[in-house]
């Protein structure tokens, strides 16, 4: 009896803890996002939010739905495996609204990016020293970018 009485202040201290714990539980209930824990220890809704980010590169299949003529040319040449936007850049806005014209390309910059000679590149990859190769003449004078092999009489 006297133990209980003389330890009363300890119960008061413990009571504060219990109250704080319940307040914590209540707050937690309202604060934790609804979808938290649906798949794992994270907010499941975040997946959908990330998946909803805007797209900038439309993808070659989208390009090809309209530009099948280019595809036909490209398919036969060395650049068959190069996707449209590898050179043309991101064009989702153009695919969405064809009246938006794609930016003009500069072959002097574009071709060199891949084809400038460097010992670090794979041996079989076609490489040129721009100064020696053309002496400043634009690439497209001789090479058609969509099918770059020089057309000497026959196709290809």
């Amino acid at each position: 009896m006297s133990l209980f009485k003389d330890a009363g202040h300890l119960f008061r201290f413990a009571f504060l803890f219990v109250v704080a714990f319940f307040v914590f539980l209540v707050v937690r209930h309202f604060v934790v996002p609804k979808t938290f824990g649906e798949y794992g220890h994270y907010r499941a809704a975040a997946i959908g939010e990330i998946a909803a980010h805007p797209i900038h590169f439309a993808g070659h299949e989208t390009c090809e739905t309209c530009h099948a003529d280019i595809l036909d040319v490209k398919k036969a040449g060395k650049h068959a495996g190069v996707n449209c936007e590898a050179c043309h850049g991101p064009l989702a806005n153009h695919a969405n609204d064809p009246s938006i014209a794609p930016p003009k390309l500069d072959t002097a910059v574009l071709c060199i990016r891949c084809h400038a000679v460097s010992a670090a590149k794979p041996k079989g990859f076609p490489q040129i020293d721009p100064a020696q190769h053309s002496g400043g003449v634009p690439c497209e004078t001789c090479h058609q970018p969509h099918s770059p092999a020089i057309q000497t009489g026959g196709a290809k």
Binding site: I47, A51, H53, G81, V82, N83, E85
Partner: peptide
Amino acid sequence: CTLCYHRITKGLTTACCEACPTG
């Protein structure tokens, strides 16, 4: 990197793969 999660969930490939000229 999100592995272009917004693209791959819609059947597109990633931006880096789309732009890679040599595969």
